[in-house]
Design a protein around this nucleic acid. Structure first.
Lengths: 118, 118
DNA sequence: GGATCTTAAGTAGACTCTCTACACAATTTA
DNA sequence: TAAATTGTGTAGAGAGTCTACTTAAGATCC
């Protein structure tokens, strides 16, 4: 058990969908595993709370971007596995480019190139 | 007058404070000018609506990060100029590094390096 | 047998922030 | 006189994340 979060960052609103969709690109997974993957892959910078995770999964399912099925986890427990739908792949691509645009816009403001910014 | 937004991106919640503080680092400015600076500097990717801008300015003022004073704009109209306070500079530094951490975390997930991600 | 830990899914409600859609006022331009 | 520009502001809706719970089943330990 890790003593405590190194320096956790709160999720910015609107980014969780993208994180979930991107995680599922590697293959189907259940909620618990998705959250762990995000936390581990982000080197513990991000942590998805269950109160954010499950509503988000239901939201994505309702929009037809992911599809669920009950299966057994590798610990032998019943778990709801989600997989990306074709629509979900399109959404992933859209959200990814939206993120890149936003990220670029932030960079433009935080690190201005123009010299007249006195 | 520009025909229409090229491809505008919505602000992610929690980033406007950072954008405002960073803008004021270049010197005092009034609300209208801050919004225009953000839009122009981001190459029209971002646009701050007045319904977001003014509540944000009042929020930052209430927290002691910016300080207002009525002055005349260069168009000769009364305008509320805000300047960064010392506390505001600290906050700017904190939010900037929070953004960088978050941005790095997103990159880790969107572009995983590890090859076992099958 | 009972207690506790781990794995897994879930809800309720608070909270924050951005947005749309307005109102208001002064000045300039047509 | 009308309309555009500059500038500040509010009300209310909507979205999404958080804290703080609840429930359940299997595993482990005493």
């Amino acid at each position: 058990m890790r003593p405590d979060a190194p320096s956790r960052v709160e999720l910015l609103q609107g980014t969780l969908d993208l994180l979930i969709l991107r995680t599922l690109l590697a293959g189907p997974a259940h909620g618990h595993a998705i959250a762990k993957h995000i936390q581990r892959t982000s080197e513990d910078l991000l942590k998805v709370e269950t109160g954010s995770l499950y509503p988000a999964l239901h939201r994505l399912e309702a929009k037809g971007w992911i599809a669920p099925s009950w299966e057994l986890s590798n610990k032998g427990k019943r778990a709801r596995f989600y997989r990306l739908t074709p629509l979900g792949r399109k959404q992933l691509a859209a959200e990814q480019s939206k993120w890149e645009a936003f990220s670029r816009a932030m960079a433009l403001i935080l690190n201005p190139v123009d010299p007249e910014a006195q």
